[in-house]
Amino acid sequence: MERRDFLLTAGGGALAMILGAVGESIARAGEAAWAGTQFARDPLPGACLQPLGDVERTLGAMLDTVVPGPATDPEGTAGALEACSMNILLDGSFPFRKYADLFALALDGIATDAYGSAFADLPYLQRLQVLVTAQDQLPMLRLAFRAIRSAFFGGAYNGIGLRYVGYPGPNLGFRHLPEASFRVAVCAELTGNGWMP
């Protein structure tokens, strides 16, 4: 059984056990939660801020290098752009907006120096090398990369990344899953009450 299938199936089994006590209406909500749709919101039309000008084009290429999407990933699965992670860079409520131009300028500068071409026009492996170089020169970029990854894998804007790693998202608890805990002592303990004298 695939891991993802297991998680969803096992979740459903646990849900059935829990639901006996909470009623049908909650059951419907719970099933949706196990399927991940409550947390893993699918993008609304227009929910993803899209690259428009040269700066956004460079930033888009940056996102597609940090978490590659169909254009770069040989498996063709969605990446940071499809997960709306561009929003982190362009949404004024996050700290990166004021650095976005600087990021693009730095990437294009390093790319031009190293490969004689704008960052967005480079092939994937060269773009990757530029990012590794750039994050050492511009530590704020390293923070931006972390935010981009977190937004993708953590489902900040939609559930693409959550589904990708097989994370079921919100749930009513894994307490009843046999796999959730070994439930028996697995090692000797040093203390009688949990803390050192």
Partner: peptide, 15 residues
């Protein structure tokens, strides 16, 4: 922590 290998690594190993 970026690029195709990292993306696949998280998918294959995380859970």
């Amino acid at each position: 922590p970026m690029g195709v290998p990292f993306k696949h690594y998280v998918r294959d190993q995380y859970a």
